[in-house]
């Protein structure tokens, strides 16, 4: 059994933290509920293809993305619903994308694995593991060349850290000294292969310093810890214009995808990790410190329920892209 042995700092919240806490709770719960609904819709064959759920890992996306500005670039993996929601992409357009409707954020062409949104500078939804790391370096290089103050934030799993692309991207980012925040979501499994079977050194945080990249590991099940660490990391990336590797140790509560029978891990391991559920952790912390009431929680839950239903309704009402448009955007329509 693998359980991350990490000391989590006890966070003291004050009444003034109430709004921040409520916001974090809302975002994590929205992601959770949105994905539970997605799984349900997958069973009903409304959503097809691959569907990779983020349940259990919500604290990472929410904790990190909170600290980005609207001008920062964001790249994610094929398990990116959480990042997309945390980035503020409309839940309706995400759901419509999963339905394959033209109202989806990628016109329905990408589905669950390929959410894109120019308005929020959300560059996917990238489904070749580690393939987007080098792109993130290039985007950060462009910011440096253009003397812009924005940074590029790139999420990936620990599985990606076994790819050669990880090595190339880390080396280039440090060599060129570009403002990119690498966020490794270490959920301990690359699909069904446990980290001990895929990495000779399982502490991902030991890999960053080999490239001269400042690195920190954080309890990815605690949104406040993630937020605090990400805030500092992002400040450093922005002011120093250098890369930073933030390793968030986390766990996926559900299967890799809807096709996964989960034969590679014990149920008891999953149950053990569920005790660290990032949503319960924050909710309990806030309740214990009396800055959130049952009424608040009910209100949040109701609001989310209606938001998710609204998203589903939007997707249901969506239309299919006309077949005549199949070849549209293989190449740009107008020269720039």
């Amino acid at each position: 059994m693998i359980v991350m042995d990490q000391e989590t700092e006890i966070q003291i919240l004050t009444a003034s933290d109430r709004d921040r806490g409520l916001q974090l709770l809302y975002q994590m719960k929205l992601i959770r509920r949105f994905e539970e609904k997605s799984a349900e819709l997958y069973s009903k064959e409304k959503i097809r293809g691959f569907l990779h759920l983020y349940v259990g890992e919500e604290a990472v996306a929410v904790g990190v993305i909170q600290n980005l500005t609207a001008d920062d670039n964001l790249l994610s993996t094929y398990r990116e619903h959480g990042h997309a929601l945390a980035r503020g992409i409309n839940p309706g357009s995400i759901m419509a994308e999963m339905y394959g409707k033209v109202q989806g954020c990628s016109r329905g062409r990408g589905g669950s694995m390929h959410l894109f949104d120019a308005a929020t500078k959300f560059y996917g939804g990238n489904a070749i593991v580690a393939g987007h790391l080098a792109m993130a370096v290039g985007m950060a290089l462009a910011s440096k060349k253009q003397k812009k103050n924005n940074i590029t934030c790139c999420f990936f799993g620990e599985g990606a850290a076994a790819e050669g692309e990880f090595h190339e991207a880390m080396n280039l980012a440090a060599l060129w000294s570009v403002p990119v925040l690498f966020v490794c979501e270490n959920n301990l499994y690359a699909m069904g292969t446990a980290i001990r079977y895929s990495h000779s050194v399982v502490e991902i945080e030991k890999k960053g310093p080999a490239y001269g990249i400042e690195t920190e590991a954080v309890d990815g099940m605690n949104v406040l810890s993630v937020q605090k660490a990400a805030k500092l990391a992002i400040e450093k990336v922005r002011t120093a214009g250098k890369p930073f590797l933030l390793v968030c140790n986390t766990y996926r509560f559900r299967a890799h995808s809807m096709f996964d029978a989960e034969l590679y891990r014990d149920k008891s391991e999953v149950e053990e990790w569920k005790k660290k559920d990032p949503i319960s952790q924050l909710q309990n912390l806030m309740s214990n410190q009396d800055i959130i009431s049952l009424k608040d929680i009910d209100e949040i839950n109701e609001k989310i329920e209606s938001e998710v239903l609204k998203a589903v309704e939007f997707a249901e009402k969506g239309t299919w892209e006309p077949v005549e448009d199949l070849k549209k955007f293989v190449y740009s329509e107008a020269r720039i």
Partner: peptide, 22 residues
């Protein structure tokens, strides 16, 4: 660039996405 064909082509794509013309 270092001998990182995938890395620097990927970086070229990223730079192109962000307004440069590599």
């Amino acid at each position: 660039v270092p001998l990182s064909e995938s890395g620097f082509v990927g970086a070229g794509i990223g730079a192109a996405l962000s307004g440069m013309r590599p």
